[in-house]
Design a binder for these strands. Structure first.
Lengths: 317, 317
DNA sequence: AACGATTGCGCAAACGATTGCAGTTGATTT
DNA sequence: AAATCAACTGCAATCGTTTGCGCAATCGTT
């Protein structure tokens, strides 16, 4: 069932059918309705591949990310798909497993398959943006989100990690803690670095800080537990829900729930429920995802080449 | 840069280039190499839309699911994308938000855009499979996974929820508990029903059971807390990580960690860490995802019309 | 040497939609 | 009555690959 078939049924030309289906004003209302009605009856749907091919578009946006972590990322995906599907774009998901080579390969694939745009959260092995050259030369818009690197050529969307971490530091200062145990993510991760810098920049110099890089609850637990035993630490910073889980578990095991001050970044779901005293920067994946999607749509739909660096405002809860 | 351009550079015909690029044996090794070499140099990549259009395939598989829950689903997606990308298929993600109308709409879109296959986890509003008719008529293979309904026309992949829940019941029986507080998911959910049936079928009849339907930690917490207060309940069943979180929190608040018996379904990550005594059916998303992907690939690549109903074996940890 | 079989490549027609341009009406203007 | 114009619609080319078929040249066989 093609446009030609419809055309011969209706004794009009394929072009007329095409235009009628697309509500082109050249076609009289009467013909338009006849065409659309028959199309409806016969359950006809134009072959979008033929159309996209001709129109040189794919209506596909790729989301390339290191891993589907349990916090934050699900919201990001939801935010992206919701925004994109409202604009008749579909969402492709590619996972790099935090491997630089996979990331480069994924980008290559996206370009080769002519997606209309790419949303990319960098792997923690990625040190520069060379592998994105192809996107530039092929004119495929790309927006970095969450874990990004500064670039003049690609838009980016994230929270201001330094400022956000600064808010956490303010809290420690204000509560006059003397010692903080801070758990960051993988050391190479840009986000780890930014949050670390932000924390230390604002934290009173006379506060002792014990630092640890961890990427799961277990490692964070071991560290927090040790800090409590050795130093009676009662103030903690955790960079993500994953490590906060480890910290909070240690805190609870030592019956410090009420006295301890646990501060960190969270998606506001599990951890605040688990530890009601948690103070956290609400890292809202839906907003990040929606904004990133909006940026890419702006590039595509209005052909704007404006490179924006969006910082999502954050609050401490 | 098209195949034609390459052809004129090399003074051969476009068909030769096409065949050379696809390693067609009709083309001499010498010509093949020349073509491939120049293609490499010029960074030429065939327009996959043109090719797919011609070949009537899309190399796209859609994954339609109710929501990106924090447990299980991330693993499912990972399992799917890994398997599919190994076969040069890309993964499209559509979210229905547990709305039947969204689900029907999503399926329609997938068909209209001619995906090569669909992996579907049903929304909990979905009562029958009428809306999948179109897939049948268009010959688009579809595999149900996780939350499914029995069907003769579509393959399915899931664990045997009844048997799995039975294993949990065995544990309660064996430990001679007298009272169980069981939390299921949304009542309409097929999975809820199956696990409930399985639990009750095996549970000793003289065990009192208090039942509750909840879909988040908070609701489960309230229920568990109440059961502990009113009945000193010490045995609990939780259908998912979400509700287990609520149960375990209540248990801990009452200092029952050591004495309580908490049993449920988990993805083996957060909850077992949080409550080391947790006994759980390991609900492995990666395996479910990979199996579902494998089923769809089988349909596509070997044109098999065999409808299989796969039950992933489970273990109680 | 003559014959069929094989090898290697090109021709041209698809695939199904879109779109610039031109042509056909009928109505309106001069 | 001729000319102008607008409103519709059709023609045909086009997007970039793939692929059935045909044609030469080469090969091996008797």
């Amino acid at each position: 069932m093609t446009i030609k078939d419809l055309a011969s049924f209706l004794k009009v030309s394929p072009s007329t059918v095409s235009r009628a289906l697309n509500n082109h004003p050249d076609i009289s209302l009467e013909v338009r309705q006849r065409v659309q009605q028959l199309a409806e009856e016969l359950q006809f749907k134009p072959n979008s591949f033929a159309a996209n091919f001709r129109k040189k578009q794919s209506k596909l946006i790729a989301v390339v990310l290191p891993k589907i972590y349990r916090s934050f990322i699900p919201d990001v995906i939801e935010g992206i798909t919701k925004k994109l599907s409202a604009h008749q774009f579909q969402t492709l998901v590619l996972i790099t497993e935090d491997q630089f080579t996979s990331e480069a390969e994924a980008i290559k694939q996206c370009c080769d398959m002519r997606v209309d745009g790419i949303l990319l959260s960098l792997s923690n092995q990625t040190k520069d943006l060379q592998h994105l050259e192809r996107c530039k030369t092929m004119g495929i818009p790309l927006v970095l989100f969450d874990n990004t690197l500064q670039s003049d050529f690609f838009a980016s969307v994230h929270i201001n990690d330094q400022i956000a971490a600064g808010l956490c530091a303010d809290l420690f200062n204000h509560k006059h803690v003397t010692r903080v145990a801070a758990v960051f993510g993988p050391e190479e991760l840009q986000i780890s670095q930014n949050r670390k810098v932000g924390l230390f920049a604002t934290l009173n110099k006379d506060i002792d800080v014990a630092t640890c890089y961890a990427n799961d609850a277990q490692a964070a637990f071991v560290f927090a537990d040790e800090q409590i035993r050795k130093h009676q630490t009662k103030a903690f910073f955790g960079i993500s829900d994953e490590v906060l889980l480890g910290i909070v578990t240690a805190v609870k095991e030592h019956n410090l729930s009420k006295q301890a001050l646990v501060v960190g970044f969270s998606d506001g779901l599990t951890m605040p429920f688990l530890h009601r005293e948690l103070r956290y920067i609400f890292h809202d994946g839906k907003v990040v995802g929606a904004q990133a999607a909006e940026q890419i749509l702006k590039h595509i739909e209005s052909n704007s080449n404006l490179i924006e660096h969006i910082e999502i405002p954050v609050e401490l809860y």
